[in-house]
Nucleic acid binder design. Structure first.
Lengths: 123, 123
DNA sequence: CCGTATCCGTTATGATACTG
DNA sequence: CAGTATCATAACGGATACGG
């Protein structure tokens, strides 16, 4: 079967990872932590994201109360997204992990290279 | 295309989430943080994990230098897994996120319920 | 401008069977 | 006990076209 929800496992951390473990949520949260942003503006910044995935990602974040959606009453209707207080606090927790990642990335890359060297593609 | 590596995005946090974002890595790290454990013992504890996924998960964690693998010279050969120092430090970073998750889970569930109530399955 | 709906290829993963 | 190989399948995500 697919990957998601392999186990409910009433573990709070799973709830969070199911949300931010995907490819885009973290990037969106990071971007919104700089300030409110409109849909297409986000698209331009994250550029590689498809319209569909940005839409899905934002909807999920909004559903969890991490992002708020504000429809502006302008001539071409605009929609502005921003982090809620909860989203901002999550951003803090993520930053902690991001700091760990930056600190250990060199070591991890070294480990990977060493591991791969021992197990060549062909046997 | 598939889900993984939608964007390389030279962002260290992605490297970490690509590793621990999956369903099992966090559970394995959590379990090993309690102390060394053998393969089938892990299987029993995490119970819902398939043999294949435990194998794959452990291999990836080992590749990143987060887990060490020790073959014991016993009659039926046994293999003991344990967190490396790096793995232990990641566990610390995860714990921080886990704490956030536990703190905010009730609020998130409330938000989800409210959101879903507004958008019924049938329109 | 801001999305949603559909189609469809790619990938992750469980089941099963087999090896050391 | 501790894995690996193969297969089938469900889920993910991009492209595209359309709607508000």
């Amino acid at each position: 079967m697919g990957r998601r929800r392999a186990l409910e496992y009433d573990c709070a951390i799973r709830d969070v990872l199911d949300r931010i473990g995907d490819a885009w949520s973290v990037l969106v949260i990071m971007e919104l932590s700089k300030g409110p942003c409109r849909f297409n503006a986000l698209r331009r910044v994250i550029e590689a994201i498809s319209q569909r995935m940005l839409s899905v990602t934002l909807r999920n974040l909004e559903r969890d109360g991490l992002v708020s959606r504000q429809v502006l009453d302008t001539s071409p209707p605009q929609v502005e997204y921003s982090l809620t207080e909860r989203g901002a606090s999550l951003h803090g927790a993520i930053s902690h992990l991001a700091h760990w990642a930056e600190t250990h990335q060199p070591g991890i890359r070294t480990s990977r290279a060493a591991y791969d060297a021992k197990e060549p593609i062909a046997s």
